[in-house]
Amino acid sequence: MGSSNRVPITSSELANLWMTYQEKTMMLRVLEHFLEHSDNEETQMLHSYYNGATKTVEKIKSILQQEGAVIPLGFTESDVNKGVPKLYDTLYDIMYLHLMTKVEMSLFALFTGMSYRKDIEDFFIGLTAESQSINSKSTQFLLEKGVLVRPPYVSMPKQVNFVQDKHYMDGIQWFSETRSLNTVEVSLIHHAIETNLVGMQLMIGFAQVAANKEVQNYLVKGMKLSKKVEVDLGEFLRQSYIEPPATHAGKATASKTAPFSDKLMMYNTGLLASFGLGSNALGGGFSLRSDLPAKMALLTKDIFTFAQDGGKIMIKNGWMEEPPQIEDRNQLTK
């Protein structure tokens, strides 16, 4: 049997390379704006990511060329405007990087499990490790700056317990009062709120500078949806006398000059909506309190509708690049 390099890439490998190319070229454009305005402390981390993303894009180009596949358009220099005022205050660049590497860790770990050719598998293993490294550095940086709020501390368990109360999964305990959240539920809620805080600021900035009125209205909806997620899930923490995470840093500036194309801002918003759908599904699946999955299901429906509406706007404006298509064999029977 020949080497793995002589085996054609599969449909899933082609799809995942294509999606990675879209995401990484978008990230390069966003970081080009951030690097124009970054402080010395932040520049090294941004450059580290930028250099890695540049190599990733070139590697994907090389693989696709070897396979005889067209190189996607992705996001180019036409999607970023140089020399414009910064759209976000100090530290938002690292907050954004922290959020997006969370998205990448999930994506690339999934793509690794969907890879069958050894070099493609190794490629995504490397990308997963790279995203984990940047995410770890950004986490420690933001903690040192007092921007990230750690999840609440709890008393360490001293013995193993099994659920005895038949109402445990109903969320009811002790004379019909709602039982306190367990640590699994707290961790999932904290994660959802933390990511939505960063996403909400992203939507605020995007909405300020969008050129297309329909896009602007859509981004305002995204801002309000992020706020709804934060408020609705935060209430579960407050019921257990836990203060939801909040941050003082990384707000949108008053700039009305767009550093990015509407196409890029819509794609980034759609990517985060997809991440939100996955996170909510995980949160609902691992919660043992019936009221929490019910709330997450309602939020998931809102996020799904929001994502669909965004796709329609992108198609309407000719911004949605079509993924590689499988041959339509139905045409052969006509």
Score class of each variant (00 low, 15 high):
123 F>W: 00
126 G>L: 04
128 T>H: 07
128 T>Q: 07
130 E>T: 11
132 Q>G: 14
132 Q>I: 06
136 S>M: 10
137 K>T: 14
138 S>W: 00
139 T>R: 03
139 T>M: 02
141 F>H: 06
144 E>T: 07
145 K>Q: 14
145 K>C: 10
145 K>D: 08
146 G>E: 10
147 V>P: 02
148 L>I: 12
148 L>G: 14
148 L>N: 10
155 S>W: 06
156 M>W: 07
158 K>N: 11
160 V>T: 09
165 D>M: 05
166 K>D: 06
166 K>S: 12
168 Y>F: 12
170 D>W: 00
170 D>G: 14
170 D>T: 15
171 G>R: 09
171 G>C: 05
171 G>A: 07
171 G>M: 03
173 Q>E: 12
177 E>F: 07
178 T>E: 10
178 T>S: 15
178 T>G: 15
180 S>T: 13
181 L>H: 06
182 N>A: 11
185 E>Q: 07
187 S>Y: 07
187 S>F: 09
187 S>I: 11
189 I>S: 02
191 H>A: 15
192 A>W: 01
195 T>C: 04
198 V>N: 04
199 G>I: 10
200 M>K: 08
202 L>Q: 08
203 M>K: 04
204 I>Q: 03
205 G>F: 01
209 V>P: 00
210 A>L: 01
212 N>H: 12
216 Q>K: 12
220 V>Q: 05
220 V>D: 00
221 K>L: 11
221 K>D: 15
